[in-house]
Design a protein around this nucleic acid. Structure first.
Ligand SMILES: [Mn+2]
Ligand SMILES: [Mn+2]
Ligand SMILES: [Zn+2]
Ligand SMILES: [Zn+2]
Lengths: 140, 140
DNA sequence: TACGAAAATGAGAAGATTTCGCATTATCAA
DNA sequence: TTGATAATGCGAAATCTTCTCATTTTCGTA
C-alpha cells in the first residue's frame, strides 16, 4: 500500500476514497476529469460521492500529488504529478492528449516574464491540432 | 458607422445589440467577459439581454471578429481580433493581462506539432506570475 | 414608404460543472 | 475500545453558459 504513504506524506488522513482515487489515477494514467474518476469507481462497484471526488482531487492538487488542467472550457482534468512539468498537444477531433517538454520554450518564457517585470509562477501551453489517426486526418 | 460594415462583412444583420457590443469592444479594448459587456452596457443605459450578449459574442467569434480566451476556469473573456496572434501574461494577484508575441516560441510549437504528427490549428500559452505593481510584489 | 417573411432579441428555464452545508460515519491517537 | 476530530455522501446551491419561445426587429421588395 504505497498509496497510503503518499497520502500520509501529503498530510492527509488515510481514507477509503483517497486511497481509491489515488490508486485509480496511478492505474489509469492519463488525464481524468472528476466525473471520469467518479464513473470509473462506480463501475468498479465502489461507492463514492461525486462531491468527495472533487474534494479529494482538490486536496491532492494542494498537496502536490496531482496537477489540474483547464483545457478548453469544459471540465477540468487531473493527472498524477510525476514531478516534472510538461505541456500538452490535444487533437481537436478525437481528444487525444500528448505530452511534451521543450527547453527552448521554457527558457523563452522566463525571459518574457522578466522583460515584462513579472515574477513567473507557472504557465500553461496547449497546442491544438489534428492528430495522425486515419479518422482524424480524413475528418478534417 | 464602420461597425456596421464589419458586421455586414461578417455575414450578420445589423442589429442594435451587435452594433453596441462591437462598439463597446472597440472603445474599451482589453479583455472583457460576457458579464462585463452586459454590465457596462446596462450602466450606460442600454437595454440588452445577457443571453444576447453571449449569443453575439459567440457569433463574432465564429466570424473572426473577436477571440475568446478560457483563462483559468472562471468566465471566458473576449477581445477584438486585431488580426495578429498573441499570447498572454497574467498577474495572479491583480489580474492584469499583458500581451506578447515570441517568434522563437511560435516556431518551436510548429516543430513540436510536426514531430508528434499533429497538424497544428491553434495554441494557447498563458504565463502566470506576479506583476511589477508595488502591491502585487509585496503581497507575495 | 409600407409590408411581411425571416431572423434576432429578451426573459427565464434549463444544462453543465463545481462547491457548499450538514447529518452521519470513519479515522486514529490515547 | 473509546471519543474527539475529520471526512463522507447527499442534495441544495452557486456559477457560467446555452436553450426555448413568444415578441420584436430587420431588410428586401412592392
Ligand atoms: Mn499531462
Ligand atoms: Mn489579448
Ligand atoms: Zn485525433
Ligand atoms: Zn499585479
Amino acid at each position: 500500500m504505497e498509496e497510503n504513504q503518499e497520502i500520509r506524506k501529503a498530510g492527509l488522513k488515510i481514507t477509503l476514497p483517497r486511497v481509491k482515487i489515488l490508486s485509480l489515477l496511478e492505474k489509469q494514467g492519463g488525464h481524468l476529469s472528476a466525473e471520469d474518476v467518479y464513473r470509473i469507481l462506480l463501475d468498479e462497484g465502489e461507492e463514492i460521492g461525486l462531491a468527495t471526488v472533487y474534494r479529494v482531487l482538490t486536496q491532492f492538487e494542494s498537496a502536490g500529488l496531482v496537477v489540474r488542467h483547464n483545457f478548453e472550457g469544459g471540465q477540468a482534468v487531473f493527472e498524477l504529478d510525476r514531478g516534472s512539468h510538461h505541456d500538452h498537444l490535444i487533437c481537436m477531433n478525437c481528444g487525444r492528449v500528448e505530452e511534451f517538454v521543450d527547453n527552448t520554450i521554457e527558457k523563452r518564457q522566463i525571459e518574457i516574464a522578466k522583460k515584462h517585470g513579472f515574477r513567473i509562477k507557472d504557465h500553461a501551453l496547449v497546442i491544438y491540432g489534428i492528430c495522425s489517426n486515419k479518422e482524424c486526418k480524413q475528418a478534417e
